[in-house]
Design a binder for these strands. Structure first.
Lengths: 246, 246
DNA sequence: CAAATTAAATTGTGCTGACATTAAGACTTT
DNA sequence: AAAGTCTTAATGTCAGCACAATTTAATTTG
């Protein structure tokens, strides 16, 4: 088959071999070298071509199958699934999404305080009674156009923050710099109609459609880091995701 | 530690050993035997306790980490993540979701036809020009209360279907019986306000908030099976999901 | 006593090997 | 020629081993 994907393995690199393979095949798929529907060589040959063991090769392919890029069939082989599928939904922030798409978001901090958490927040963040949190609301605009109105509560033992920092960068980047490795988040997406306040801030009509999101994010040590309620203009934002069946 | 989870392995069972372990630990977590935050024995001991090899044990734990139930830290150990996190978002249908929650949904087929696909559908389902598809709209109610208005296009070479079948069961169960193994889906969730038709069908006011979803589902052979536009009453439905960072 | 070093515990990565299971095609038999 | 049977090829599962990297705790040293 001579399925030479043009990928090479650097054994002196600190990045694990299987991950190098994942990245290589991903790149081959997204660049079009590996066309949708095309068959890959079998695991054993592929491993031999790259001078890897079969388990290592398999681990890489496992990840690609899990993320929906490859399809395996016992007795048959491995195929690239049809393209046009985006990457699966990952934990990211609106700020990341926008900057990754080349947009230049601006943030206006509407309110900011460092206060004792109310009961709902204590529960959401699993904090002991009396804990203090940062509580703030922000308005995010892209190209001068308001897009999202965001209210967040963040535990205060991660990183100190103030209005100026929040105006300058995204919440998640501040938290990541504070040493947080986000692991998972639960979120709920729904809809509502804009009330007078929301309409005025988002520069839209009262009663227009808004996408709502509530999210609580957890880091890799199990700490509940932040919770928030966001609303987005429905004409400017929607959630796109790829679901993978396990 | 005596972390005996009370799970046992059946080597004569056809279900793979690592999967038995996954199910066992999942059950222990959901039943409360393994409390949030508690530490597990190390991989090697756990494997020995169950008379398994370490790679097998690790594969099981890998899956649990990936699904967000466990957290591993090199040099430290493995913990059950804090509770209150639901299962990650998986590919499922509204019908499944409702019946799994003990609800009894009813379906009213508002229109049904077997027609040549329009261009948008040909693209979404990646079909050759001139292909025919099933096109239908359904109204789903729970407890007599309308919840969702659904319009779908389905390729016709999977399973024959008619109004009676669609009224009696969910689309996905029909397709699964036709031999489809769903693998992934891309979907987009947004919001809109109800127009007159939607309001009347969903028994709500014109201008009330609706959650919108567009989805295209792909099976394990890469075929694009169905695409649809759904709208849900925002006061009765929202999408809850758990995102996992990879 | 405090800082630096060392040791131990635990997960992370990688290899070799073996056999089971499934799917498809080739072959044989009726 | 049709049906069943065998062979082959590929992925699926499992075992055992070795060593690396990281964190925490214990120990030593200044």
């Amino acid at each position: 088959m001579a399925n030479n994907l043009g990928l090479s393995i650097d054994r002196s690199s600190p990045v694990p071999l299987y991950h190098q393979v994942v990245q290589g095949i991903e790149a081959a798929i997204y660049s079009g070298v590996l066309e949708p529907g095309s068959r890959l060589d079998n695991e054993i040959d592929l491993a031999a071509q790259l001078n890897l063991s079969r388990p290592t090769m398999r681990k890489a392919m496992d990840e690609l199958v899990r993320s929906g890029l490859l399809v395996r069939k016992r007795g048959v082989g491995t195929q690239v699934v049809s393209s046009q599928v985006r990457r699966p939904l990952e934990l990211s922030s609106l700020y990341d999404d926008l900057t990754n798409n080349g947009k230049k978001p601006t943030t206006e901090v509407l309110s900011f305080s460092h206060v004792e958490a109310d009961d709902a927040t204590l529960t959401a963040l699993q904090l002991p009674a009396g804990s203090k949190v940062y509580h703030f609301t922000r308005l995010r605009k892209v190209g001068g156009k308001p897009l999202a109105l965001m209210e967040n509560w963040v535990r205060d033992d991660i990183a100190a923050m103030d209005e100026a920092m929040l105006a300058a960068e995204g919440l998640y980047s501040i938290l990541r710099r504070g040493g947080v490795n986000f692991r998972l988040a639960t979120q709920r997406i729904g809809a509502m109609t804009a009330n007078e306040y929301q309409a005025s801030k988002l520069d839209t009509a009262e009663g227009s459609a808004l996408v709502t999101m509530e999210r609580t994010a957890v880091d890799d040590t199990g700490r509940h880091i932040e919770t928030g309620h966001h609303v987005y203009r429905a004409d400017s934002y929607s959630f796109e995701m790829t679901l993978v069946q396990r």
